[in-house]
């Protein structure tokens, strides 16, 4: 009851989220304003195209594993925002490159890689909380369609196993995510998120990921360093295992 009361009071106290450009908007219902490009060394690049929409891709991976997504913000008010994101990915080229003898052989050379048409769809709702905090909840569905002979093993590594799980078994996977972020002073943002993955058709079908990160922005928030960790506890074909993986990135945001 106490929790419910706090939640209701928090929602009632929500300030405007219209000035949300200082947030991480990758896993929120927020979208970049028209003409704004945000990119990083390793992160996906995304670009605001107006009318509450943004598009994104990964510039380094695009030529071997073409991926593109579009995010549409359907509702935006002082208290909440609602968006959906839809993407496609054709990883066949990358997988064929990685199917080789010797160093870099992630898949065995005798693997048969089909044409894989992967698509995902997610819906996100973001709520502005007191203390400059933003809460986002996401549900995602992924599926792959495959054409041609298919014989390739799973990649039993954290992060990759879950994100490629819809290439195997029943070729579907689900994700439920919660993302909380807020400001620390003028230049710092903090982020904590939790994701639960469910891969039906596997005996090893559940994984939990948690991320904690800090972002330091400078030069009028145009550039930023991000560093953090990802904790993963997953079920793999060899059993359960936990990992903590550090990460860092440098990014920038331009108004084109």
């Amino acid at each position: 009851m106490k929790l419910l009361s706090i939640t209701i009071l928090s929602i009632l106290a929500l300030p405007s989220i219209s000035r949300a450009q200082t947030t991480w908007n990758s896993d929120t219902a927020l979208v970049l304003e028209k003409g704004t490009l945000e990119t990083g060394l390793f992160e996906y690049s995304h670009f605001g195209i107006g009318k509450g929409m943004e598009i994104g891709t990964h510039p380094l991976m695009f030529f071997v594993s073409p991926q593109v997504w579009i995010k549409k913000q359907w509702k935006k008010s002082k208290r909440l925002a609602l968006s959906t994101k839809h993407g496609i990915n054709i990883p066949t080229g990358l997988m064929k490159i990685l199917s080789r003898e010797g160093t870099g052989g992630i898949y065995p050379a005798d693997s048969e890689i089909p044409i894989i048409f992967s698509h995902f769809h997610e819906g996100t709702i973001s709520l502005k909380l007191p203390l400059k905090t933003l809460l986002s909840l996401t549900m995602e569905f992924s599926n792959s369609l495959q054409f041609g002979k298919s014989s390739f093993p799973t990649i039993d590594l954290p992060l990759i196993y879950t994100r490629t799980s819809h290439f195997y078994g029943k070729q579907v996977s689900f994700r439920a995510g919660m993302d909380i972020q807020g400001q620390l002073g003028k230049n710092f943002l903090w982020l904590i998120d939790f994701n639960l993955f469910y891969m039906p058709g596997y005996s090893n079908q559940k994984t939990m990921e948690h991320k904690g990160a800090l972002r330091y922005s400078f030069c009028h928030m145009k550039y930023f360093f991000t560093a953090g960790y990802i904790y993963i506890h997953g079920e793999y074909p060899f059993g359960n295992q936990s990992h903590i993986i550090p990460f860092a990135d440098f990014g920038m945001r331009f108004d084109l």
Binding site: S99, E101, G102, T103, G104, G105, I106, Y107, P108, A109, S111, P153, I155, D156, L157, F238
Partner: peptide, 11 residues
């Protein structure tokens, strides 16, 4: 090794 990135050996 948790993952050997060669010849598709993996873990």
């Amino acid at each position: 090794s948790d993952f050997v990135p060669s010849d598709g050996i993996g873990r």
